[in-house]
Amino acid sequence: MAIEAQYIDHIVISSNDSAATAKLFADNFDIEIKRTMTRPGTGAHMEFAKLQEVILEFAGPGEVKPYDEVKAKLSGVVLAVPDIHATVASIREAGFSIGDPHPAVQPGALFTGMRGGTNGVPFGFIQYNAIPIEEKPA
């Protein structure tokens, strides 16, 4: 069964100061930071840039400690898929271990991650418009 992965949805760059790393990338490569957010639950500070369909996600702690040096690394890849349940079934059928889909931070999206077998790359999958978006009362 083909997974039909559509595109790299985002690449995660983790940093001990994600705001500083996002600003450095913006300055060095003339890319625009389009959004910043605090991740619900963890308090992580995240900033986002986008080049065509690929989002660069800069992720780091909500509280930055006075490190001597800001350190960042590439720390994950997420692929967009049209049917995450079919993806999970196909990957398991191929003999790899993957978690069950669960609601993503992005409204209406489902996410799941591989459990090893990806050559050291934290690998995830996301399906947009997978579940109804809950409307909050006015």
Partner: peptide, 19 residues
Amino acid sequence: KKIHHIGVVVENADEAMKF
């Protein structure tokens, strides 16, 4: 213009291509 690629270092490309 865009992200051309991400580079992944592997021990054995044939094995990695199984995934």
